[in-house]
Design a protein around this nucleic acid. Structure first.
Length: 265
DNA sequence: AATATTGTTCAGCA
DNA sequence: GTGCTGAACAATAT
């Protein structure tokens, strides 16, 4: 479930393993995720160059090439990265392989092939093209910004949190966790949230995302009162012990506790 | 064997 | 313009 925290962990992983090594070749097992260029063109753009650094915006990871271009990686719903040397460590569903001069390789893993890989001149090019809102963990994304973005907007808070066009990074799973920690019913309309409650949502958003990153985005390691690791089982609410309910919001399954998340704002 | 997932995009509609 | 719904995309686990 690569949402912001997952992508941030992947960024740290790539930083720790794959920077400043000469790329010998790029092996493309499926072209399906390539956007705007084919396998040969991708190889030509990357060969004999090195990854120089990374940036993240929302759920997108940007990898700077030492020649100036940027590789864009989106992980869809099932994407992952793995850095390894020996064939016995080779992961399944490695759709694109970046082979380095030191014998190691970085695999772009994507079992369900709904991802995106491309090359742009600047991250801003992609951000503008996709019309992405500001990254919710950016330093200048403060409560003022959050409130202004939501001001005058219609619809339900869960939908707006997941709207990449107004703010980027939050998906289905973390929107549920944020609203659970904030004690806000997912279907509450934005216009019905008073300033205090909105502040609560904002604080929980920053908190949940930071905590998730600290725990390497692995739900099993999250604090005991987090909902994420229980959202699929028939587990009771980790805060009050009551039953967890499932609802449809914006065409997706949302999980919440009716006792802890009251319907008024 | 049908169904639920996960994110993005787009068409159609209120 | 805004937002919702449903479909499409892929492939797997249950």
């Amino acid at each position: 479930m690569p949402e912001l925290p997952d992508v941030q962990v992947l960024k740290q992983y790539l930083d720790a393993t794959s920077l400043h090594q000469q790329i010998e070749t790029v092996e493309v097992h499926s072209q399906q995720m390539l956007e705007g260029l084919d396998a040969q063109q991708l190889r030509d753009r990357l060969q004999d160059r090195a990854f120089a650094g990374t940036r993240r915006h929302g759920k997108y990871l940007f990898v700077e090439l030492d020649g100036g271009d940027w590789l864009v990686l989106h992980f869809g719903m099932t994407g992952d990265l793995k850095y390894y040397k020996n064939v016995d460590k080779e992961p399944e569903y490695d759709q694109i392989l970046f082979r380095f001069a030191n014998g190691y390789q970085l695999a772009y893993i994507m079992p369900r092939k709904l991802g995106e890989v491309r090359v742009v001149d600047q991250p801003e090019t992609l951000i503008e093209e996709k019309e992405l809102g500001p990254d919710v963990l950016a330093d200048d994304f403060d409560f003022q910004t959050f409130r202004q973005i939501l001001e005058g907007r219609r619809g339900m808070i869960k939908s707006r949190l997941m709207d990449q066009h107004i703010m980027a990074g939050i998906g289905n799973v973390y929107s549920d966790e944020i609203l659970f920690q904030a004690g806000v019913y997912p279907r509450t309309h934005v216009k019905d949230l008073d300033t205090d409650t909105l502040g609560q949502v904002f604080d929980c958003m920053k908190e949940v995302l930071h905590v998730a990153i600290e725990h390497r985005a692995e739900p099993e390691e999250f604090p005991d009162d987090y909902l994420t690791q229980y959202r699929h089982s028939d587990h009771d609410c980790p805060k009050c012990g009551g039953p967890i309910e499932r609802i449809e919001v914006a065409g997706r399954a949302g999980y919440f506790c009716p006792r802890c998340q009251k319907k008024e704002g």
